[in-house]
Design a binder for these strands. Structure first.
Lengths: 339, 339
DNA sequence: CTGTTAGCGCGTTCAA
DNA sequence: TTGAACGCGCTAACAG
């Protein structure tokens, strides 16, 4: 009952041909007679022959598997991104090995290590927010395992990445608010350590001051560690300023949700006393009574798809990019305005 | 520059010992002299030796990889479940290969096939909602690849599974509403084809009539195809009844969201004119002004964890369950009441 | 058109 | 305590 899966050796024996003949026949090699070819293929079908991928991986030094490392699967942004990756990879017969770093650098390193040992052909990664040491990425490179970064990009030279030009998103957000007559625009940014935070801050200041000549009040700028408490504290800071602000741009929708909740608890009328604009455009926000008036859509599915496309191109024998210049794909964010 | 990763052969050569000595030394085999052992281990460390998992998988017929097949990664329930699976598996040095069926039977079959070819050691799956043919599962069984089903369980004999006793959740929901003096309780169920729908309906009727002796009005029972439109239509049916209902139990939170939206648009006061109870307990609901008053929590993370635990036990040389009786783990749902 | 064979990296006998 | 040798399933180079 413990039927071992059939191998090409078995088929070869039964047909009194050599294993290589069987192998070639199954691969539709041109140098095999039609007669033998069909005989082989028929028997293979009968015996439910399935190639042993483990053996092939071993032999070819190629596993047809790509590793995907994300901070957290349960965040909508990342699970959507992985959808994009998976859909694209499946098309090309690649498998997906996943790992969650839980935003911990050591965990991330360990995942990279096991993935390397498992001989994934390439890696797509959104780096943990606290990662500052990148030797594990260099190690992959040394082992000829290509990496495509997405969304969270480390500061390294010559890497491939796909990311959203968050600055443009911020610009759109600021301009949108200005058009709505807002002048005192607050910012609840993410942790300073994140590039994503710096990008937002830079674009916020740039758009506000350089482009629109609106003076920046440093008190209007604060940040949260992304926890509910951190966000509430940030809100309390902003709302207690003498100079009142009429709009707040938040790091993302989750922050916006907590901020809005804070506002409501403190009897501040959302969308009247204060408006919110955020990043991510989570579908659920459309169910709120007082949603952020706009949210910057970052297209995680597309980012994932694109990252997979780049990686598979890198993996193909003839990368379309023959000069081996790093891929830098920028996804343009869009400001989604809530009715 | 294209440094090949070091192998035990390399180490053996450099140290003028045999490969088997190296192999044993690295495995801390007792029959190796302390001197040689340390020499080997030192050099291995220097050379950044890492065992080639592909080779080991091939040799041992074991990949230390488990396949996880889900309908859809972007659904919060499943991405949370996979978190549980991953966290548990990582602990035990197992890797996760994922695949999305997108609720399509053929896709599911194909994923099973590739996973089998890739020689995953076992599979955890939540079956596609339309799957009616289960031969691919039998095929896995024939190949000695154990399967653990979770949440969506096919009607098969002798399978291992972990699931939520949804009937109890429904019972709690109904009883909760009755305690709140509701007597006319509507139900917006899911598609009839889903077992999950039948379970809910059965428990709804059972609790209402058999246990609490409240007559069932068939008009109070309707269903949605889970689209926004379907839910709105269901709502319109329920709200236009002569006999007014004061509470509605919905198939899940997404349905509840659409239903609540419908109510608001039609000036029906949520939580006054009508109350909602649903399933899933999505975190986002806590941000609503008028959330469902309660939601049945199904603990996806725990379900995932448990499924992984069962599978790894099945995979271990000495399954704690020596009689090989199928595992049937039931997670008790909880009614989460919104403040 | 087909067969023979080496070897991918490793663990594991069996012998010494 | 160590080494030599085999084989896992498959592909590809070489030989007919």
């Amino acid at each position: 009952m413990e039927k071992k899966s059939t191998t090409i050796i078995e088929i070869a024996k039964r047909l009194n041909v050599s294993v290589s003949t069987v192998s070639r026949a199954l691969h539709d090699h041109h140098s095999i007679g039609l007669r033998t070819k069909t005989r082989v293929q028929q028997l293979a079908a009968e015996l439910n022959y399935e190639p042993n991928q483990a053996a092939i991986s071993f032999k070819q030094g190629k596993t047809f598997t790509i590793g995907v490392i994300l901070p957290n699967l349960s965040e909508s942004f990342f699970s959507t991104a992985i959808c994009g990756i998976e859909d694209f990879a499946k098309e090309k017969k690649y498998n997906i090995l996943i790992g969650q770093s839980h935003d911990d650098e050591d965990t991330e390193k360990q995942i990279v290590q096991t993935m390397k040992n498992h001989r994934v052909d390439g890696v797509i990664i959104s780096v943990a927010k606290n990662s500052v040491n990148y030797e594990h990425f260099n190690m992959l490179k040394k082992n000829n395992i290509p990496i495509v970064f997405f969304d969270r990009i480390p500061k390294m030279e010559g890497i491939h990445y796909v990311a959203c030009k968050i600055e443009d998103g911020m610009s759109q957000a600021v301009n949108f608010l200005i058009k709505q007559k807002h002048r005192n625009i607050g910012l609840i940014n993410g942790p300073d350590t994140l590039v994503a935070s710096k990008d937002r801050l830079g674009a916020y200041m740039n758009t506000l001051y350089k482009k629109r000549r609106i003076k920046i009040n440093p008190d209007f700028i604060t940040s949260t560690d992304l926890t509910k408490e951190g966000t509430q504290a940030a809100m309390s800071r902003l709302m207690s300023l003498k100079e009142k602000i009429s709009a707040i741009i938040t790091f993302n929708d989750y922050v916006a949700l907590d901020a809005i909740q804070y506002a409501k608890k403190n009897n501040i009328k959302v969308n009247e006393d204060i408006c919110f604009v955020s990043f991510a455009n989570l579908p659920i926000c459309h169910y709120l009574d007082t949603p952020p008036i706009a949210s910057v859509e970052q297209f995680p599915y597309t980012q994932g798809e694109k990252a997979a496309e780049i990686l598979l191109d890198l993996l193909s024998d003839s990368p379309s990019n023959t000069k081996q210049e790093p891929y830098h794909v920028i996804i343009e964010p869009t400001l989604a305005v809530n009715n």
